[in-house]
Design a protein around this nucleic acid. Sequence first.
DNA 1: ATGAAAGCGCTAACAT
DNA 2: ATGTTAGCGCTTTCAT
Lengths: 385, 385
Amino acid sequence: MQKCVKCNSVDGVIKSGFLRGKQRFYCKLCHFNFILENDDAKPTQKATQTTIVDLAKHLGIAPSTVSRALNGKSDISPFTRKAVVQAAIDLDYRPNLLAQSLNKGKTNTIGVVIPNVELPFFATALARMQQIAVDTGYRIMVCHSSESQAIEILNTETLISCRVDGLLISHSKETTSFDHIRYVLAKDVPIVHFDRVCNELDTPKVIHEDFKGSFDLVEHLILQGCRKIGIMLGPEKFYISQIRLEGYKAALNKHGIKVNEQYIVYSEMNKNDGIRVFEYFINLPEPPDGVFAMLSRNAIEMMVEAKKRQIKIPDEMAFVGFGDDTLCELFEPSLTVFHHFPTKVGEAAINLLIENIDKKNMLPSCTKSIPGELIVRNSSLRVLK
Amino acid sequence: MQKCVKCNSVDGVIKSGFLRGKQRFYCKLCHFNFILENDDAKPTQKATQTTIVDLAKHLGIAPSTVSRALNGKSDISPFTRKAVVQAAIDLDYRPNLLAQSLNKGKTNTIGVVIPNVELPFFATALARMQQIAVDTGYRIMVCHSSESQAIEILNTETLISCRVDGLLISHSKETTSFDHIRYVLAKDVPIVHFDRVCNELDTPKVIHEDFKGSFDLVEHLILQGCRKIGIMLGPEKFYISQIRLEGYKAALNKHGIKVNEQYIVYSEMNKNDGIRVFEYFINLPEPPDGVFAMLSRNAIEMMVEAKKRQIKIPDEMAFVGFGDDTLCELFEPSLTVFHHFPTKVGEAAINLLIENIDKKNMLPSCTKSIPGELIVRNSSLRVLK
DNA sequence: ATGAAAGCGCTAACAT
DNA sequence: ATGTTAGCGCTTTCAT
């Protein structure tokens, strides 16, 4: 059937398994293994990019000389350098960053893992990170965990495999196990946590004033006359849920108000979760007269519901939220918030990481808290007499 | 002063320039060049990652065998494979994607250039792209042009240098020259335009129903009784500004309304630009009774202004916008929009790109238009009798 | 079934 | 100032 490509005999040829999905043959006569190449592979011969060797050949010099010229090394004649630079332009040369990185053991790439870019906080923080990255000669590889622990772990693995120089991470809602982070630490890859940090590991972190923000918002409600204050938190295991709850309790304590467990609700912070929590609150024997939602968006959803029921905001029920955005500002009534400056968080996080990369990860880990600001608006500002 | 590290003599040693920022010495006696290493460099000897060679040594076999075992090749004994896999686990091996990519000439990475993740459209489209990328074994490298042509060009260069397998791009507001895209085409790197496309180049594109959307919105205003319809476009050179303007004109024509240049305004679509454009409209001798803003956000800003002046929406002035988001839905009055399904756009764009990558960029370029949907809300819905 | 060797594109040490 | 060589980690021929 099949002729041996070496000795041209037909008799001794047998099939001998598969190689890369292709039938392999063996000729018993000349002891030769071979595969049939379908020769439509070669023509696709990609318009391969110009390399340093191409430049070297073109100029009749050594590749290393080209490299030196292109990298601004000192020991090279101005004449040669000019020629090389010109050739690079003529032949449309672009350095292969893969090769450079492999060689240098540094990629100049930072990996970022975030749960969801659609949350304005992350979008803004990310935008700022990108800016700084460009300015400092880094690239950014973003991965979305889509709020899934499994994907988050996968993302982390991928970025490590890409040999990013460092990692910025904000955990998904689901994340409760941190072995993937321990692995990163073990490999001595610099990492910085931001926003949704992990408190059981000793990593550098950039956080908000979660306690103070929560405290300020709740105290503000109290000063506006609220006494029955509801709080809509994120998932219970969430570190920032816990901290913000503490701020809430501290404010109540300071003003001698007893904590009522009925007013404390955990949630997934999904779109429209505010509606369900509002239902719960409003059906309590004594509905709250002030509500603090950890995600501003949820606070607004509650206000929409409240308005539907003709509840007067802020007089019958006041609302506040953590984190500012366009919606909070433009919605009516505009929402009182603790603004947590996503830009500054992104900035601090990436700067801290770059510093750690530069210092070979020898810096002691520290926690940087970005000061926030209470912005009082109509959703809570009662006309006091 | 300086002892020769080879012959230990002091007399013949002279300085001989710098190498990598360090003083170099030359010993005339033994003709030896040397540099003084400050020996704190070595200790930092990075906890380098396990390689395929480490595994090979550990098992006493050849690196190539390890590679075969790990890549599920057929010609390997099950016993060896098991041993290799176990060793990989024991030694915490992760493949170096840089090396793999360099070797294979494929990175499995897609580059994405967007103007601004803070625009909900891009955030959503990006999120969907990421999902699909993960599912199909690709990684995504996102770059932000921050609406700057210069940065966009830089981004494109960077991604090409990273040897991404393909490029998804949506142009910045500023972009009027497309040489960087021509360069990508010349290098035969697959590229797909989405949303803000470039019409002077023959590339695959994913777009919205810009004409139809614009037409539908304007016709809707007309059917609600508007006769003096203002339009707030993006930059004049913007391809989608032009198309949407055509849709606007077509709708007016169909209903026998004369186009009035006064009602056509170009803008940068920045935050708060809606306010200024509203000022302009309202100060016209005959202010419009209906306004279409290309960016929904700007429409909402106008409504805020209108409400401040006690203008009745939609009866005295109706508003519509292109593109839906939370804000449009929750603002009062809620905004009538042409929803353009960012998710679908992202999905179509990345799928088209992956197909092009698989087919070695041999596919003819096509333009895919994602059907949108008119969502009528209170900002334009008049009570007609 | 396995090993040896070449090569992806680049840089850096070592010569000269 | 420039060429030669080795090596980054991996895959893939080729040989056995």
